[in-house]
Design a protein around this nucleic acid. Sequence first.
RNA 1: GGGCGGUUAGCUCAGUCCGGUCAGAGCGCCUCGUUUACACCGAGGACGUCGGGGGUUCGAAUCCCUCACCGCCCACCA
Length: 905
Amino acid sequence: MAKVTRELPKAYVPADFESAVYERWLAADVFAPDGAGTRADPSQPPFVIIQPPPNITGSLHLGHAQRTAVEDLLVRHARMQGRPTLFLPGLDHAGIAAQYVLDRILAAEGENRQSLGRERYLERMWQFINSTREVMLGQQRRLGASADWSRLRFTMDDGSARAVRAAFQRLYLDGLAYRTEALVNWCPGCRTSISDLEVIPRAESGTLWTIRYHLIDPATGLPSPTETIGVATTRPETILGDTAVAVHPDDARYRDLVGRWARVPFVERDVPIIADEVVDRGFGTGAVKITPAHDHDDYETGRRHALPMITILADDATINDLGDGYVGLDRYAVRARVVADLEARGDLVSATPHEMLIGRCDRSDDVVEPRLKTQWFIRTRPLADRALDATRSGRTAIVPKRFVKVWEHWLTNIRDWNVSRQLWWGHRIPAWYCPDGHVTVSTDPAGPAACEVCARPAAELEQDPDIFDTWFSAGLWPFSTLGWPEDTPDLERYYPTSVLETAHEILFFWVARMMMLGLHLTDREPFHTIFLSGLIRDPLGQKMSKTKGNVVDPLSVIEESGADALRFAVIHGATPGEDQKFGSQKLEIGRTFANKLWNATRYVLGARPSSIAPDAERQDPPKAHLGVSERWIRSRTAAAVAGVDEAIGDCQLAEVTRTLYDAIWSEFCDWGLELAKVRLSDASLADAEREATWWTLVESLDTFLRLLHPVMPFVTEVLWAALPHRRDESPLLITARWPAPGERDEAVDSTVAEVLDLVRAIRNARTEAGVDAAAWLPGVALVPADGDVVEALRPAIERLARIRPLTLAVPGSDAHPFVSPVPVLAGRFQVVLDVGGGAGAAAGPDRGREERQLADAEGLLEAARARLASPQFIERAPAPIVEGARAREAELEGLVARLRESLSR
RNA sequence: GGGCGGUUAGCUCAGUCCGGUCAGAGCGCCUCGUUUACACCGAGGACGUCGGGGGUUCGAAUCCCUCACCGCCCACCA
């Protein structure tokens, strides 16, 4: 168990303790919801985050670090609230992405997929991922992820495999998975089909060629030498697959041609001229060549008109044996030759530069070719409707809300999902075909015993060679990780999960599919909240990528600045759903903040009054002995608790760090500790009073450490261990209780704020007067009747503003003996300094400052009066606003008067 | 072609949903400073007509309209 050490090293060096702290957590067994060290209240609802599994293709980048930091923050917060907490880690096999990476490694070794063969290739893949796996898990641990490693899952493990087979069979039996020949997106580079989402449209410059097809003379049945129809295309090679020419039904130019035929060159095929509203009369010639087997629009047109569909491309994007004189040539070589040959025939009308969208493969960047393939599809419409209902009904919330619109639009216009991939690395589709083409879907990895239609024996059946899209198994993640399709205790207890946190990039790829599959297969929404994070970009705002070489390894950052600094930085810099630029500047904030906290704790530990034993058990500060400063510190700490609670409730995590940064640095350290020093060193006070001050500091610091722990777990754990605690307290901060709301004291808040303003004003005046910073000046405070607080804090004002002695007088009494008096105004309070009397006083008062103040005040007063002079304002503005404006006016009047008086001297 | 973000101090960004001391933070810059937690610090300072224009309102960084630029998502003009 953590040994309580009340002595901290002088310097904050994260590398010295972060790993050790993590080991301590592991040893205490606090990560698992049912671990030996958890102090969870089993009657509370569990909090569950199933980690979005990172792709097992190498190492984690800063984006992963950010998401892990967010997830871990939420998990630690819930754990401290006493909820049973499950943070289930995992890794994704990343089908096509992993193959792409491995293929490049193989290429460097002079091997490739084909040279190895399916079996050896998969062996190599397992080898590869076994090496990356440890790296990735190590990175997460180093980052502080408080995940239950005993439940680590992988999308290619047996559990996932079972879930995939069961899910697919269920979808098949429900009529939601079907096999058909359809136009799919084919990536010649990856040699597989890809989903619509993986086709990235990119604006590129191409050429629009207009070519002439000769009409068939009805009399002779031969192409007419003179009668032609012009069609425009950006892909002339597809001519070889044309089966029609289409015009708009209302286009007068072509009305008479509809129903006639035209001759497709080279393949010398006669195709009908059809009328279809898909044609845009204004584009090109108004006539379109139709290639149903190689274009999405044409495919639809072809289906409407029952046109033949002729596939002319092979898997490697060369022309197949239907391509007549172009057989075996690459698509672009054919394009060039077709153009040349058309020109030679005199049938090339024009070639003009043309800007267009080219679909490229997300992975290989190769140009995607639509083509016909027989594949498995998931019928998404019914699934999408349920997903829409989940968010519309509020059973699942999307944060930030604006993504709801995107979600709705996509799910409303969704198309069926092609899940077949012609790859090797992934879950094999559990469908078997008999020689008669009957389909049997089985959950048995060995396959069915016989064809379920014709009962042919297993030996005659053949399994589909394809694998599933990697997002299919990913789509089962929230429940496959908990034991589905078995009805396990984990599934019962932890499903549906609490929060799904992920990058908005994969809202469709992953989140929508989990929602659709989850609802259909488990009948429950897989998560209550979808929390979408933005991307981490480099300091120039560019997306980080390996090819750009701007990827940052979280470990190198942690090495240099500490995991806490990294976590603070990525959370502090994030607005939900917005991308953030990340640079060393942001890390500095976290690192210096941790350093500040470290030193503040060192101060508090060292400031313990000697009347308290070094190993004293923790006590509450006795209320009877609290001074104004202590009451202020406690109230401000309570304000921070409220602020953090509200921010977390709103998923405004950056607001959490801002609140704590300000509360800890600008209030607790800058003023709280300074005020405390005055009391702690005041020999005139009783021991009990000094003790009350110290226990107040300990209490406040303890609270801040708890609040900050989810963001900066390491440094807070170490510092917290150094504080005195009660005997029944948690041995570790990670399982300590989240702070309860504290008592606010608004009156103390505002009066102390006024005194602090006064101190600032005096410091200003000293600087302006050119007084030596170390000099002690005498002063007289002119305090109104209700200014007890000045009296109470007089020693603090003296010390913080370096005034000695500070005597009190009623306003209006001009009785000060000063030779060089400088009046200082702050709100209701006024202090007159003697800059001539103190040691080291240099110059007289600087009138320039007061003149500027006066000008400012007069300007503001004028504006305030103008506002109050408006009858509309008085009539229509709410009373509190008007009163506030009047108070402001009065305040400014007083200030102006005092400044004028001061300047007139 | 639709939709969504962004545009606030030299830089990185809060604040905009719920209009009124909200014009803020950090970094950078300038001036001081070895007051026994911290120079990874402290005290103080300079710097913005909140992208442009119009409107609503007593009052707009905040709401509405519009324009501009940057970015993203969706989309079947060959």
